[in-house]
Design a protein around this nucleic acid. Structure first.
Length: 116
RNA sequence: AGAGAUGACUGUACGAUUGCGUCUGUUUACAGACGAGGAAAGUCCGGGCACCGUAGGACAGGAUGCCGGCUAAUUACCGGUGAAGGCGACUUUAAGGAAAGUGCAACAGAAACAGACCGCCUUGAAAAAGGUAAGGGUGGAAAGGCAGGGUAAGAGCCUACCGUCUCUGCGGCAACGCGGAGAGCGCUGUAAACCCCAUUCGGUGCAAGAGAAAAGAGAGGUUAAGGUUGUCCGCCGUCUCUCGAAAAUCGCUUGAACCUAUCGGCAACGAUAGGUCUCCAGAUAGAUAAUCGUAUUUAACAGAACCCGGCUUAUAGGUCAUCUCUAUUU
RNA sequence: GCGCCAUUAGCUCAAUUGGAUAGAGCGUUGGUCUACGGAACCAAAGGCUGGGGAUUCGAACUCCUCAUGGCGCG
């Protein structure tokens, strides 16, 4: 799915992104990102308000699975995907298309890069 | 056939492609093995384990409260007794002491442990006085209940039965049960009100902590600041407190463990034997997914975070066992 | 993960350690006043005291249990 080196794993880096990042959002998803050197790193945040542990875990898994095709093909940056309460009940396809829209809008991903 | 009661079990399966975590092996990219529940949940109890310059005494405070058993441990588990509910199978039950003391019992009612409102009887011309708790009315609770005798009217005043209390026989380890004799019975309820009696509790929780690494600034104190549990005594006996920086590693999973069989026990539970290496979750932004196919229904509640034992709560659909009542037929 | 606290009218809070109709302010609705509105005055509605059970004659208050919301701990 996602190797560990592509993941954000420290509380500090999350707060850094929250503080300095730019934001784009759809109804179900929110993307916060900071351009950086090196590799692209991603984190997922699903708040306690969205549901119980089973629901939250399911959403996180879906987000990881949706991101996996883009992994390694995105401009170097640190990103956090934040789920909103709208995401409950959405299918994998809907989440996936939302994510693609956000990545293109943020200018982190284009179709040419996918080919190369 | 219908309506119930109780106790259990199961709770998607198989396959394809792409992927995730841990371990092992070669080796740096592959291969193999394994990878979430009955409640992992709530955190309501009990323990293990860890630390706190010892946890020592007194007081205060908390918890529990029928009997026996089981256990590492218990008030919560198991079995029984009594009481309450149900036609019944069965269910529920924090169930010691109110005759040690204190408090409370609004309103109503004459009166709430103290005395006469109506009524009844006696005396009296009447007013009134006396007797009386059988009847009425008030209330959650009203002077043991009910029947007969008795009486001016009444009253355990007397008697039978039931209840209560005291003594006592038998059965039971015990709670208690079944009886017998006596006392006429002057004693309301509340202890999940204070309290009394008995038993019991040191505190903090893996964000406990361990051992490394690093080590600056400010304030206070010199025998009385500080620490030790809520207070006091007692004890410790020189640095103490605050702010800042840094947090990799271990603790972390082999354990009162799990499975199977036999035996003991009504049961909780215990004992013994076996399991060719039984050990096969152990993360730290936190691993089970995504896309499909097949099966009959599109499938509940729900995600380990130091580990166990119990309780409580959530749970679509399906299965089994033992019972009860009602109706019909034989 | 662990440890605590709270829940009363639409909102913010009371209710003398159990006693009967659960109060107050703001807000809402209606009326008086005014040419109209505000302010002021008068009146009314609005509560299964978060849900369920237990103790008690009687529970917002005591006990158990569930739910919701909030806080703290490196």
């Amino acid at each position: 799915m996602l190797a560990k080196r592509y993941r954000l794993s420290k509380r500090g880096s999350f707060t850094y992104v929250y503080r300095h990042g730019e934001r784009k959002q759809t109804a179900a998803l929110k993307l916060i990102y900071v351009l950086s050197r090196g590799e692209d790193r991603v984190g997922f945040s699903v708040s306690n308000k969205i549901g119980k542990a089973v629901v939250r875990n399911k959403i996180k898994r879906r987000l990881r699975a949706a991101y996996s095709p883009y992994c390694g093909h995105v401009a170097p940056s640190q990103m956090v995907f934040m789920a909103t309460e709208e995401i409950v009940g959405k299918s994998f396809a809907e989440i996936s298309s939302d994510m693609r829209y956000l990545l293109i809008r943020a200018g982190l991903y284009t179709d040419e890069k996918k080919n190369g």
